[in-house]
Nucleic acid binder design. Structure first.
Lengths: 225, 225
DNA sequence: CCTGAATCTAGACAGTGGCAAGATACGGCC
DNA sequence: GGCCGTATCTTGCCACTGTCTAGATTCAGG
């Protein structure tokens, strides 16, 4: 363990990890800077130096969460995944990093206008809407490319955006309900549940594609009917 | 106005309303029993008598929320609404009662095993899965009730349950993201957005071109309610 | 009017977040 | 080497919060 001397070495990371553990276990409201400091063996005011504030610590958590999410979404698509793969990666992120996820989507807990947060947020959104655009364009059989935006729709939202929002809502709702314990009677594999649910909403064919090359560690395959 | 004397008459409700206002405005973590007491003009220990605990107050909020939700879902279906109508009512509930909604799905804030909470929760779930069953089975109606007690096999969920979960995830995700501010650039009417999103997910093809109107057409007047 | 129960007050205590001032250690400079 | 600036951490303090205990006030019903 790090020496108990003054310069701890990487107190910031240790405080973050302790905070994540507490949040995952007892929720963000049970977080106490003093308890974190005690765990790390430093004085009660040490966290303030690294994060300034309790909101500052949670801002750091949220920013890190969005970056992790963006990285995992990018990894999923880089591995040849489509929109479904991105959605499953989203669910996997939520269950693998429940503390990050919980904080990220509770903007009253932190400073949502922080530039680091907004940048990482935009990065994650780009992947979602990008894969959604590919799906939308493929399904309608028109055009190609069109990475993120083509505001030519009279209704207001272009297809990529609408498909992206729909898919995002689906996986986000599933992840949220799962973490809240509202789906605990539906097995123990949220990613598999997401695959099953997505096949209902979007129809297995439309979003089928190549699905298995996503790095689903323990997935039992079986695209459910 | 209630007198400032001892027996306030309606302190419990007033505290609840004050709590809802604070939560809707600044989030559940900013809630302070002492502040509520001050607002109501009573001493700082008065809330404890009615709710015992801070968690007790939030338990009351969650129970009331589930009952309100169940009532609105039941009203939507009683008015001849289908699964879509129930989903839209769900979104409307979340935006009309953001404080209730936020607390309900954060079980670490309250005592989720409270009998009043569980009963209201089951009541709301019954409506969702009931309408989902009607949609899934089409003509083949199955028995009513048995919404939460079914020890479903994780591998093989019945259609009603799967459709219900899919729809629930969709509207819950939309409501959650909306309240978190993540969809603020998509207009100002979450219910209309939900209709559009539902038409993508459940209304056939993955990207339905310009099919903006599903079944209820342009008439914004909701059949429910 | 009197009594018991419901309701609310008053005081105290341990924790908590945040601030200010000081102590300590690291890294570069001469 | 010695020195100093800066980042890092500590100590002390204050206001606020939740919760507990004991006591005061009011209401309902005989």
């Amino acid at each position: 363990m790090a020496k108990a001397a003054y310069h701890h070495g990487n107190l910031r990371r240790e405080l973050l990890d302790a905070a994540l553990a507490v949040i995952a276990e007892r929720g963000p409201s049970a977080l106490s800077l003093r308890e974190l400091a005690g765990r790390a063996g430093v004085s009660h005011a040490a966290p303030a130096h690294h994060f300034g504030d309790k909101a500052g610590l949670l801002t750091a958590v949220a920013a890190e969460g969005y970056e992790l999410l963006a990285a995992e979404l990018e990894a999923a698509t880089r591995a040849g995944g489509d929109f479904l793969a991105a959605g499953l990666a989203y669910v996997r992120f939520a269950t693998d990093h429940p503390a990050h996820f919980q904080v990220m989507f509770q903007p009253t807990l932190y400073r949502a206008d922080d530039p680091a947060v907004r940048a990482a947020e935009a990065r994650a959104a780009a992947v979602l809407y990008g894969t959604a655009g590919a799906l939308a364009a493929g399904a309608t059989g028109e055009g190609s490319g069109a990475a993120a935006g083509d505001p030519g729709d009279p209704g207001g939202l272009d297809d990529a955006r609408r498909v992206g929002v729909a898919g995002w809502c689906l996986v986000h709702g599933l992840a949220t309900l799962w973490l809240a314990g509202n789906l605990s009677d539906l097995g123990d594999d949220p990613v598999e549940l997401a695959r099953s649910v997505a096949s209902i909403a979007f129809g297995g064919g439309a979003a089928g594609g190549a699905r298995d090359d996503v790095r689903n560690g323990g997935g039992a395959g079986a695209p459910a009917r």
